[in-house]
Design a protein around this nucleic acid. Sequence first.
DNA 1: TCTATACTTGACCATTTTAGTCAGGTATGT
DNA 2: ACATACCTGACTAAAATGGTCAAGTATAGA
Lengths: 141, 141
Amino acid sequence: MKLTSKGRYAVMALVDLARFDNINPVSLRDISLRQGISLDYLEQIFSKLKKNKIVESIRGTQGGYVLSRKPNEIKLTNIFHAVDEKVKTVQCKKELKKGCNGRATKCVTHNLWDELETHINSFFEKKSLEDLLKNNTEQRT
Amino acid sequence: MKLTSKGRYAVMALVDLARFDNINPVSLRDISLRQGISLDYLEQIFSKLKKNKIVESIRGTQGGYVLSRKPNEIKLTNIFHAVDEKVKTVQCKKELKKGCNGRATKCVTHNLWDELETHINSFFEKKSLEDLLKNNTEQRT
DNA sequence: TCTATACTTGACCATTTTAGTCAGGTATGT
DNA sequence: ACATACCTGACTAAAATGGTCAAGTATAGA
Ligand code: FES
Ligand code: FES
């Protein structure tokens, strides 16, 4: 079970954005430099964040991105959903009512993985960008 | 974040084993048929489980595998550790005191992922094979 | 108006990981 | 002896990952 860097970078970038967008929009170039993330890769990520109304873009010189909601209204769930970082613990397709390998019944561990998925997602539903900002401020003092 | 089938199969197989090893050892062939998992793949998995003292093997005709501890003494953590199904949320190497991309400092989200890792692992530390057996019995009645 | 900045889009790709298969072997109960 | 079943290591097709690259478009400021 590992977190992909797309999800990790998305959150890193948004924390950075949230810290610096008080007055002016923040360019991906700045985020790229501060966080050490490839600019091209960031562009892919922000394209998705924009489609999912997490951020808004301002084009042209002095342009950049701005959060489209307040930090406390942006949960990790929203971010992960936007960049397709999904938690997948079961093997079976839920919509088909089949088990793991196309079998008729659910496998013996199906419920366990379902519980696990819920357990992990509850973490993402609790944490908001604001929580991360606080946390980061505390560290610096 | 997804669970690999190696981890999933290991748990499936051990639940199966726990249910049927009351008297005789259980052959991988039987597990393979009951759970629909490739026999060759199971052999790889059980080789690791054996090295980590989760199961013991009995060779020859009528042979098979047996749990080496009681079901309530085998946690998911033990199983996952045995088959190298590890939870990895941070990008940086913990032993090196460097950040995400070889940088000097930890990235802004490092603590978050650490928390997440702990959160997930706590699930695996709580659940034992015995819990899964109970759960499964309840379902059948 | 020209130009630099910065967002936008889509194709492309090397590497790594996953989820196995295959081909042999060895031990042992009957 | 022989069938069963564990044991070992090499191998591999396919998918996912973690990006890069190229070619735009929009806009602020000189
Ligand atoms: S995970 Fe759903 S049936 Fe196996
Ligand atoms: S995850 Fe540890 S520094 Fe980024």
